Deep mutational scan, measured.
Amino acid sequence: GCWSIEHVEQYLGTDELPKNDLITYLQKNADAAFLRHWKLTGTNKSIRKNRNCSQLIAAYKDFCEHGT
């Protein structure tokens, strides 16, 4: 299931919640338009490089609020 937004804000980028895991989750569960909008298409590695934690948190919040 979903992590809470508080959990993501607190732990994203740590061993508790690697950016990797959040990106994988969104790529698996969000639709193509969402991924394009948040620039989460492409390889996990390129996304990790190009999107910082606050951008990923914003995307995750949007996903939780509007889910697909």
Score class of each variant (00 low, 15 high):
residue 1 G to Q: 14
residue 1 G to V: 11
residue 2 C to D: 15
residue 2 C to T: 15
residue 2 C to N: 15
residue 2 C to G: 15
residue 3 W to P: 04
residue 3 W to E: 03
residue 3 W to N: 02
residue 4 S to W: 02
residue 4 S to H: 05
residue 4 S to A: 12
residue 4 S to Y: 04
residue 5 I to T: 07
residue 5 I to R: 05
residue 5 I to D: 03
residue 5 I to Y: 13
residue 5 I to A: 08
residue 5 I to C: 07
residue 6 E to K: 12
residue 6 E to D: 04
residue 6 E to W: 05
residue 6 E to R: 08
residue 6 E to V: 09
residue 7 H to D: 04
residue 7 H to A: 05
residue 7 H to L: 06
residue 7 H to T: 11
residue 8 V to K: 01
residue 8 V to G: 01
residue 8 V to W: 00
residue 9 E to M: 13
residue 9 E to C: 12
residue 10 Q to E: 07
residue 10 Q to F: 05
residue 10 Q to C: 10
residue 10 Q to T: 14
residue 11 Y to P: 00
residue 11 Y to S: 09
residue 11 Y to I: 06
residue 11 Y to T: 13
residue 11 Y to G: 03
residue 11 Y to E: 04
residue 11 Y to D: 03
residue 12 L to G: 02
residue 12 L to S: 02
residue 12 L to D: 02
residue 13 G to K: 01
residue 13 G to F: 01
residue 13 G to W: 01
residue 14 T to M: 04
residue 14 T to I: 01
residue 14 T to Y: 04
residue 15 D to I: 15
residue 15 D to K: 15
residue 15 D to Y: 09
residue 16 E to W: 09
residue 16 E to Q: 15
residue 16 E to S: 14
residue 16 E to R: 15
residue 17 L to E: 00
residue 17 L to F: 11
residue 18 P to T: 11
residue 18 P to C: 14
residue 18 P to R: 14
residue 19 K to T: 06
residue 19 K to R: 06
residue 19 K to E: 07
residue 19 K to N: 04
residue 20 N to C: 14
residue 20 N to V: 15
residue 20 N to W: 08
residue 21 D to N: 13
residue 21 D to T: 15
residue 21 D to W: 09
residue 22 L to R: 01
residue 22 L to S: 01
residue 23 I to D: 02
residue 23 I to G: 00
residue 23 I to C: 02
residue 23 I to T: 02
residue 24 T to Y: 08
residue 24 T to M: 11
residue 24 T to S: 11
residue 24 T to D: 15
residue 24 T to L: 14
residue 25 Y to C: 07
residue 25 Y to R: 02
residue 25 Y to N: 03
residue 26 L to Q: 00
residue 26 L to K: 00
residue 26 L to T: 00
residue 26 L to G: 00
residue 27 Q to Y: 03
residue 27 Q to V: 13
residue 28 K to L: 08
residue 28 K to C: 07
residue 28 K to D: 08
residue 28 K to S: 12
residue 29 N to Y: 14
residue 29 N to S: 09
residue 29 N to T: 12
residue 29 N to V: 09
residue 30 A to S: 08
residue 30 A to D: 00
residue 30 A to H: 02
residue 31 D to L: 02
residue 31 D to R: 06
residue 32 A to R: 12
residue 32 A to K: 13
residue 33 A to V: 13
residue 33 A to E: 14
residue 33 A to W: 10
residue 33 A to Q: 12
residue 34 F to H: 03
residue 35 L to F: 02
residue 35 L to I: 04
residue 35 L to P: 00
residue 35 L to N: 03
residue 35 L to D: 01
residue 36 R to K: 12
residue 36 R to L: 09
residue 38 W to T: 02
residue 38 W to I: 01
residue 38 W to K: 03
residue 38 W to D: 01
residue 39 K to D: 09
residue 39 K to H: 09
residue 40 L to Y: 02
residue 41 T to W: 10
residue 42 G to V: 06
residue 42 G to W: 04
residue 42 G to K: 07
residue 43 T to R: 12
residue 44 N to H: 08
residue 44 N to Q: 10
residue 44 N to S: 13
residue 44 N to A: 12
residue 45 K to F: 03
residue 45 K to G: 07
residue 46 S to T: 11
residue 46 S to N: 15
residue 46 S to L: 08
residue 46 S to W: 08
residue 46 S to R: 15
residue 47 I to H: 06
residue 48 R to V: 09
residue 48 R to Y: 08
residue 48 R to W: 08
residue 48 R to K: 14
residue 49 K to G: 06
residue 49 K to T: 08
residue 49 K to F: 04
residue 49 K to C: 06
residue 50 N to T: 09
residue 50 N to L: 07
residue 50 N to W: 06
residue 50 N to E: 08
residue 50 N to G: 10
residue 51 R to F: 14
residue 51 R to V: 11
residue 51 R to N: 13
residue 52 N to H: 03
residue 52 N to P: 09
residue 52 N to M: 05
residue 53 C to N: 07
residue 54 S to V: 13
residue 55 Q to E: 08
residue 55 Q to K: 09
residue 57 I to R: 10
residue 57 I to W: 04
residue 57 I to G: 04
residue 57 I to L: 15
residue 58 A to K: 12
residue 59 A to S: 05
residue 59 A to R: 00
residue 60 Y to E: 00
residue 60 Y to K: 01
residue 61 K to H: 04
residue 61 K to Q: 11
residue 61 K to D: 02
residue 61 K to A: 08
residue 62 D to W: 11
residue 62 D to Q: 12
residue 63 F to T: 00
residue 63 F to W: 12
residue 63 F to Y: 13
residue 63 F to G: 01
residue 63 F to H: 05
residue 63 F to S: 01
residue 64 C to D: 03
residue 64 C to Q: 06
residue 64 C to N: 09
residue 65 E to W: 09
residue 65 E to V: 11
residue 65 E to N: 11
residue 65 E to C: 08
residue 65 E to Y: 10
residue 66 H to M: 13
residue 66 H to A: 14
residue 66 H to R: 14
residue 66 H to F: 10
residue 67 G to A: 11
residue 67 G to T: 12
residue 67 G to I: 15
residue 67 G to R: 15
residue 67 G to W: 14
residue 67 G to S: 14
residue 67 G to Q: 15
